[in-house]
Simulated assay, not measured.
Amino acid sequence: MGLAIGWTDAGIARLLLPGDTPADMRQRLGQAGGSEKHDGQPELAARIAAYSEGARDSFRDITLDLDGVPEMNRRIYRHIRELEWGETTTYGAIARWLGDVAMSRAVGAAMGANPIPLIVPCHRVLAADGRTGGFSSPRGVRAKMEMLALEKAASPNGQFSFGF
């Protein structure tokens, strides 16, 4: 499958989605402060593989290590982890939940900095007009669209657009 998982004693700290070569993934994981191990997290890897085949999994039970992640981002990540399979929200809706619609860009920045995509389901956060926004996987927006299609997610306006 070609994904990489970084973890500490406190929980999952990093997830790299498929799309890079193994050497590139090792380099990215190392840049994030991880180290290469081959003997851990087989259950999570199996769950992610099952997800990629259509298994419904919220991954909410996975303990995360967000040490070093800004508190605002942590708050946003906790919020979006409550989204159900196939449920989407918007940058603006999260900003309103935070108490200031002007924080939409900050929400977008938090999504772009998400160190644990899929488990922190930033792929379910869209622009209000159905545009996907970006996605920080090596395969970018195409990966986001595939994940949303897998979940049979609905866009806020009924259709998705690759536009940014």
Rank of each mutant, 00 (worst) to 15 (best):
A49H: 09
A50M: 04
A50W: 06
Y51H: 13
Y51K: 12
Y51T: 05
S52V: 05
R56I: 11
R56K: 11
D57Y: 04
S58V: 00
D61E: 15
I62K: 01
I62S: 00
T63D: 12
D65S: 02
D65R: 08
L66G: 01
V69K: 04
V69L: 11
V69R: 09
P70E: 14
P70W: 10
P70A: 14
M72T: 15
N73V: 04
R74N: 10
R74G: 14
R75D: 08
I76K: 01
R78N: 13
R78T: 11
R78I: 01
L83H: 00
E84H: 12
W85N: 01
G86V: 01
E87P: 02
T89E: 00
T89H: 07
T90Y: 11
T90F: 13
T90D: 03
Y91D: 09
I94P: 04
A95G: 10
A95K: 07
A95P: 08
R96G: 07
R96Q: 14
W97N: 02
L98S: 09
G99A: 05
G99I: 05
D100F: 12
D100V: 09
D100N: 15
D100Q: 10
V101L: 11
S104N: 12
R105F: 07
A106P: 05
A106D: 12
V107I: 14
A109T: 14
A109V: 15
A110S: 13
A110D: 01
A113C: 09
N114S: 05
N114H: 01
N114V: 06
P115Q: 04
P115A: 05
I116M: 06
I116A: 07
P117M: 08
P117D: 09
L118D: 02
I119M: 02
P121T: 07
P121K: 01
C122V: 13
C122W: 03
H123G: 03
V125C: 06
V125T: 03
V125H: 04
L126R: 10
L126N: 06
A127I: 08
A128P: 02
A128Q: 05
D129T: 05
G130C: 08
R131C: 12
T132M: 14
G133W: 08
G134T: 12
G134E: 06
G134I: 04
S136I: 06
S137C: 10
S137A: 15
P138Q: 08
G140K: 11
G140F: 10
V141F: 07
R142L: 12
R142E: 13
R142M: 11
R142D: 13
A143S: 11
M145G: 03
M145P: 01
E146Q: 12
M147C: 11
